[in-house]
C-alpha cells in the first residue's frame, strides 16, 4: 500500500470513529428526545408514539447507519425545535466563524512574526526576555478571562469598541470589523505565543546555516538578512501550526463567540446543548470534528509535499 492510500484509509477510519463516538455520546446519555419535544406533561402513550414516529424504538446501530447514510449526502436532519435543516443552520453561521478565524490568525501572525524577529536579533537580550515572559504570561490566560478584560478596557473604560453583538458585512464594512476586533484580538493574543515560540526556534536554526553566513559576509544589514534570507525558510513549522489552528478555530471558538454574542457555529452548538436539541448537537459536533480532522489531514499532506522526509518519519512515532 502506498503512503498516501494508507493515510487516506486512516482518515476514513478516524472519521468513522469520530461520527460513531458522537452519535454514541449524544444518544446513549440521559434525556429522552420525545420528552424534550412533548414536555413533561406528556402521557406515556404519547411518548411511545412519538418515539416510534421518530424511529427511536429501533436499535441504535441501525439508526446510526441511517443517519450516516443521509449525512454523507449532506442531510444532517432537522432541528427538533425549529425544524430548520441542520446543514442549513451550520452553513448560515459558518461565515461568521470563518471571519473570526481569519482575523484571529492575522492578529496572531501580526504579533508573532515581529516578536520572533526582534527576539532572535539578540537571543537572551532584553527583547527576547520580554517576549518570552509575555508569551509565558499569555499562556496562563484563558480566552474567557481575556475577553472580559478586553471588554472592560476597550468598551467599559474607554468606550472605543462595542462590547458584544455582531453587525453583518452587508450593513457596512467598518461596523462589521468593529464588532469583530475584540473577539479576534482575544483569540489572537492567546495564539501568538505558540506561533512566536516555533518561529523563534526555527529562526535560530536557520541562522546557523551557511547561506546566512554568506549574506552577512556580503555585508548585508542584519534586518535584510533576517527578513530577506532567514524568515522564509524558517516559516515551515509556523505555517503548519497556523493550519492546525484553522481546524481548531472553526468550532473551537465557542467561548469567544459566546462572550461577544457572535452568531457563529460555536454558539449554534452551545444553544443546541442548552435546548437539548439532540439532532442539532449531533450535526454541529460532527461538522466541527470532521472539519478539524480533515483540515489536520490536509495540513499533514501539505507538510509531506513540502518536506518528503516526513513521509517516512512523522506517522510512525
Amino acid at each position: 500500500m502506498t503512503w498516501l492510500s494508507r493515510q487516506l484509509l486512516r482518515l476514513v477510519a478516524v472519521l468513522f470513529a469520530v461520527t460513531l463516538l458522537t452519535y454514541f455520546i449524544v444518544n446513549i446519555l440521559p434525556g429522552d428526545v420525545a420528552i424534550v419535544i412533548l414536555g413533561n406533561l406528556a402521557t406515556p402513550e404519547d411518548i411511545a408514539g412519538l418515539r416510534k414516529d421518530l424511529g427511536l424504538d429501533r436499535p441504535m446501530l441501525v439508526r446510526y447507519f441511517e443517519w450516516l447514510g443521509s449525512a454523507l449526502s449532506g442531510d444532517l436532519g432537522r432541528s427538533y425545535r425549529t425544524s430548520e435543516p441542520v446543514a442549513q443552520a451550520i452553513i448560515d453561521r459558518l461565515p461568521v466563524s470563518l471571519q473570526l478565524m481569519v482575523m484571529a490568525q492575522l492578529t496572531a501572525v501580526g504579533i508573532a512574526i515581529p516578536a520572533a524577529l526582534l527576539s532572535v536579533r539578540k537571543p537572551g537580550g532584553i527583547f527576547d526576555r520580554i517576549s518570552a515572559a509575555s508569551a509565558f504570561g499569555f499562556l496562563a490566560v484563558p480566552s474567557f478571562m481575556l475577553g472580559i478584560v478586553l471588554i472592560y478596557v476597550f468598551s467599559v473604560r474607554f468606550d472605543l469598541l462595542p462590547a458584544t453583538g455582531f453587525t453583518p458585512m452587508s450593513e457596512g464594512l467598518w461596523d462589521n470589523l468593529e464588532s469583530m476586533i475584540l473577539p479576534a484580538l482575544t483569540l489572537g493574543l492567546i495564539e501568538w505565543t505558540v506561533l512566536m515560540r516555533v518561529l523563534r526556534s526555527d529562526l535560530l536554526t536557520t541562522l546557523k546555516e551557511d547561506f546566512i553566513l554568506l549574506a552577512r559576509a556580503k555585508g548585508l544589514p542584519p534586518w535584510r538578512v533576517l527578513l530577506g534570507h532567514a524568515l522564509r525558510p524558517s516559516s515551515f513549522t509556523l505555517i503548519t501550526v497556523l493550519g492546525l489552528n484553522i481546524g481548531g478555530l472553526i468550532g473551537g471558538a465557542v467561548i469567544v463567540e459566546q462572550i461577544f454574542a457572535l452568531p457563529g457555529v460555536g454558539r449554534l452548538l452551545l444553544g443546541a446543548i442548552f435546548n437539548r436539541d439532540l439532532i442539532l448537537v449531533q450535526g454541529t459536533v460532527t461538522f466541527i470534528a470532521t472539519s478539524f480532522v480533515v483540515i489536520n489531514f490536509l495540513v499533514d499532506m501539505l507538510y509531506a509535499v513540502l518536506d518528503p522526509r516526513v513521509r517516512h518519519v512523522r506517522f510512525r512515532s
Binding site: 434525556g31 481546524g247 473551537g252 465557542v254 448537537v281 478539524f292
Partner: peptide, 14 residues
C-alpha cells in the same frame, strides 16, 4: 481528533 472543549461540553451537557 475531537476538539477537546466540544467534547467536554457534550459530556457535561448530557
Amino acid at each position: 481528533a475531537f476538539p477537546a472543549l466540544v467534547l467536554a461540553l457534550t459530556f457535561t451537557a448530557y
